[in-house]
């Protein structure tokens, strides 16, 4: 019994030893936030709320990417999936006047794009980088070609304060006063984590992403897992697209993703292919983006604004190089699976 306790203590210590940097940074961050909140609650809230907003499409995009990669398919077409979904969601809303239809169609469009990627990378065994690139260019072309002037969807999706929670200091405004897709994103992080690590489907997904042949030999249908996951992942990207056009902007513009799909890709790798990691990475990026805006607002730093503009990107590189380092992708991602015989 004591032996077991010892063992657990050891594990805990080992864990601490391995992750001390993370915890230290985390604690420091919380302290810093609370200190700032004490000094200037309004600005602190504003920055943190903005951080959440900046991070939402990135988290969704990264979730899309990691669901695919966990089952062995690299997806660099997130950008295209998001863009065309944003378009579909907006057009549907503009024509039907119903935002729910819009979101649903956005998600369905994303799923269809996921299905296309699945066909290309699973059935046709195209190189997966090519499959994703095809999606990106195709989405850019289709949305620009079919873009229509003068459509309007009316009001965009509004925040829903969550009762008393929204009145809490600091976290109320930041976490509990958001529009529905943002809430869904929070929930999705947990759901995807739960599915990946605590369900049968997740176990099989990870097996397929690491060693598809092993999964195959115990009767797991590798192709089915990959198809379904890519379609679901497409749906998540579709939600990201719906977020962009219906919740964040309230309109569609050509190429409105502006590279967010690629940043999401970076966020996914940064987060080591885990939902919480991706969330953390997206929040970090979002925080840096919000800080960049806030520095400009305050006018405190008298340097050319281009240098302030570099902040999120440089910070990402510094944190990545300094604290995160090497990460290990699912072993089978990028490799088409061939059944024997």
């Amino acid at each position: 019994m004591t032996d077991k306790n010892n063992n657990q203590d050891n594990k805990f210590l080992k864990h601490l030893k391995k992750n001390w940097a993370k915890y230290t940074v985390g604690i420091l961050l919380i302290v810093a936030i609370l200190y700032n909140y004490d000094r200037d609650p309004k600005v602190t809230q504003a920055v943190l709320a903005s951080m959440v907003r900046h991070s939402t499409p990135l988290v969704l995009g990264a979730l899309c990417g990691l669901i695919g990669e966990r089952s062995g398919i690299i997806n660099i077409g997130i950008e295209g999936q998001m863009l065309i979904s944003a378009f579909a969601a907006f057009m549907t809303t503009a024509y039907t006047g119903n935002i729910i239809f819009g979101v649903v169609l956005g998600i369905l469009t994303g799923m269809f794009m996921g299905y296309l990627l699945a066909i290309m990378s699973i059935a046709l065994k195209l190189d997966q980088i090519i499959g994703g690139t095809v999606l990106n260019i195709l989405a850019l072309g289709i949305t620009s070609y079919f873009y229509q002037v003068g459509l309007s969807m009316g009001q965009k999706i509004l925040p829903i304060p969550l009762g008393k929670l929204a009145d809490l200091p600091l976290v109320g405004r930041v976490l509990f006063n958001n529009p529905p897709i943002t809430y869904t994103t929070f929930i999705l992080v947990f759901v995807v984590h739960y599915i990946l690590f605590h369900t049968k489907w997740g176990l099989r997904t990870r097996a397929v992403g690491e060693h598809p042949r092993a999964a195959d030999t115990v009767g797991v249908d590798v192709f089915k897992i990959r198809y379904v996951n890519l379609i679901i992942a497409g749906g998540v990207a579709g939600l990201a697209g719906s977020f962009l056009s219906l919740e964040a902007v309230g309109s569609f513009e050509r190429a409105m993703t502006n590279g967010r799909g690629f940043v999401a890709l970076a966020v996914m790798i940064f987060g080591r292919w885990t939902p919480f990691g991706a969330w953390g990475a997206a929040l970090l990026f979002g925080f840096a983006s919000a800080m960049q805006t806030q520095i400009n607002f305050s006018g405190a730093l008298d340097i050319p604004y281009q240098f302030i503009s570099m902040l999120p990107y440089l910070l990402t590189i510094v944190v990545l190089a300094g604290f995160v380092g090497r990460s290990r992708a699912p072993a089978a991602s990028g490799v088409p699976y061939e059944k024997e015989g």
Partner: peptide, 29 residues
């Protein structure tokens, strides 16, 4: 960065694109 710290080139190259835009914007303006 990749060889020294293991930072993945996909991330760093994406980020450096934006850095380059800002550097060149600054210089040319």
């Amino acid at each position: 960065l990749k060889t020294r710290t293991g930072a993945h080139e996909v991330i760093t190259t994406i980020m450096l694109n934006y850095v380059a835009i800002n550097i060149t914007d600054y210089l040319s303006n």
